[in-house]
Write a protein that binds this DNA or RNA. Structure first.
Length: 485
RNA sequence: GGGCCGUUAGCUCAGGGGUAGAGCACCUGACUUUUAAUCAGGGUGUCCGGGGUUCGAAUCCCCGACGGCUCACCA
């Protein structure tokens, strides 16, 4: 039940009074001459022109016939000084302003006694009346659930959150610039896939009415991007939303952003070089350094990153040499002998990942490439010429998280066909629901000839976590997935 | 999905069987260089929801909702 004197009522009354004066509290436009940051820079250069600024009121200090109001726009904030002897009758209208309102102010800049660059108002306009009160000015908004559900309040009241999402934006912009400057073409491929593929994951299923056909939200962009390599676009990339119908955690959101890039005539060694160079370059551009603090550690992205084979890393971690286990039963038993619980599945992808996530990943704080995965775990990657049991694949880790996955792409259509078939076997014999599905259209593309190609997948959200020292992926996604209230 | 923790005013938080509290915000008044403005006054509430125990429940118990962490799953 609304009280007669609660905040929204008081503000509705103000709104009513404003309208009674024939003033529109929600006008259509306001022409700013500068942002607050530009205005301050202007004054510091010694140019003191008349300026018009606009922004949200974040604080107000009323002192009788003089009032100081802080307004904030996306560039920063500025203090505005209102004097009754300069504004005349209009000064009384300040009473209708509240913290949270959006106003436009024009006047001249000056410095107060405390040396703060301030706008001396000669005129002002209500641009949008706020009916709700803002979170507390000192502590900001703390309630995590409210910060995510009403992210706008988080952005208004927590400056560091605003900065964090600016870092995210600049990170993506610099990744684009890096790739564009190296001749990559940015493309857009379908989000709706007739068959999910390119990764191990449960998909979201939807239905197209006109086609009367089930479709899947993409779990990867891989198979379409490779078709473009077949089509002669030798360097392509896509930065896009990926959807995986799996658990939510501090490292997982059901929709997340991934960069995938494919470069013809390159192999995974070339991709490794590109990735370490790109990340350190982007860190330098965005953060001004290649060293970041993350969860109490200092991570240095400058190349070269450490390279270690998966086999060595697992052996060091727990003593198991997966190449000695020629069948999945024996590998699973070896894992269980270490006291690690495993599912009944014998999927090599599952078992390998279990070993990595338990014994290797938590220790990979500095950027590290794990190299050469068992062929059964990577149905789309090319075998190593010197050891057919392995494929040319790497995963990159930093801060104890996997951030990238890449391989020399399998371009032999006959072998790809066989790999799909053995994946289908895993599904039928061992119930591995996430095994790669046979994709006849993709085979058809390969049959036309795909050049040797190096491909990369990079988790953008996790990279931003590393850049901003955030331990939860929800802190770097503007609107993380939450249960509907 | 399991375990642990949390949910009290618009916001940040105290209070843990006996009249619902503080700071900020808000309202009234004073104040022409303040900046967490200051000063004087005002407490504005479905104590997350439902049930139970009790003379009496924000507080104890049970069920549920939502969130955080964690385990499982995954990337």
């Amino acid at each position: 039940m609304a009280r007669i004197d609660d905040i929204i009522h008081q503000r509705l009354e103000k709104l009513h009074r404003i309208r009674q004066q024939d003033i529109d509290p929600y006008p259509h436009r306001y022409h700013r001459s500068h942002t607050t940051k530009e205005a301050i820079a202007l004054f510091e250069r010694g140019e003191n022109a008349q300026v018009s600024l606009a922004g949200r009121i974040t604080a107000s200090r009323l002192m009788g016939k003089a009032t100081f109001i802080d307004i904030r726009d996306s560039s920063g904030k500025i203090q505005v000084y209102f004097r009754s002897d300069h504004l005349g009758e209009k000064y009384e209208f300040l009473r209708e302003f509240d913290i949270g309102d959006i106003i436009g102010v024009s006047g001249n800049l000056f410095k107060t006694h405390t040396e703060e660059i301030t706008l001396g108002a000669t005129d002002f306009t209500m641009l949008s009346k706020s009916l709700q009160s803002l979170p507390e000015k000192w502590h900001g908004l703390v309630d995590v659930e409210k910060r995510y559900r009403q992210r706008y309040l988080d952005l208004i009241s927590n400056e560091e959150v605003r900065q964090l999402f600016l870092v995210r934006s600049r990170t993506i912009a610099h990744i684009r610039r890096y790739l564009d400057e190296r001749g990559f073409i940015e493309v857009e491929t379908p989000v709706l896939h007739p068959i999910p593929g390119g990764a191990r994951a449960r998909p979201f299923i939807t239905h197209h009415h006109a086609l009367d056909q089930d479709l899947y939200l993409r779990i990867a962009t891989e198979l379409y991007l490779k078709r473009l390599i077949v089509g002669g676009l030798d360097k392509v990339y896509e930065i896009g939303r990926i959807f995986r119908n799996e658990g939510i955690s501090i490292k997982h959101n059901p929709e997340f952003t991934m960069l995938e890039s494919y470069e013809a005539y390159a192999d995974y060694n070339d991709v490794m070089k590109m990735l370490e160079e790109m990340i350190s370059h982007v860190a330098q551009e965005v953060l001004g350094t290649t060293k970041v603090s993350f969860a109490g550690d200092t991570i240095d992205f400058s190349p070269p990153w450490q390279r270690i084979t998966l086999r060595e890393a697992i052996k060091e971690g727990c003593g198991i040499d997966f190449l000695e286990h020629t069948n999945a039963y024996s590998l699973r038993d070896a894992i269980r002998q270490l006291g690690i619980e495993t599912e009944e599945t014998l999927s090599p992808a599952y078992l390998t990942d279990k070993l990595v996530s338990t014994f290797v990943e938590p220790g990979l704080i500095q950027p590290t490439f794990l190299l050469d995965y068992p062929v059964e775990t990577s149905p789309l990657a090319k075998r190593k010429p010197e050891d057919k049991r392995l494929v040319e694949r790497f995963e990159a880790f930093a801060g104890g998280m996997e951030i990238a996955n890449a391989f020399t792409e399998l371009n032999d259509p006959e072998e790809q066909k066989n790999r799909f078939i053995s994946q289908e076997d895993w599904r039928t014999k061992f119930g591995d629901e996430e095994a790669e599905r046979y994709q006849a259209d993709f085979i058809l593309a390969l049959e036309h000839g795909m050049p040797p190609t190096g491909g990369l997948g990079l988790g953008i959200d996790r990279l931003v976590m590393l850049f901003t020292n955030q331990q939860s992926i929800r802190e770097v996604i503007l609107f993380p997935q939450l249960r509907t209230k």
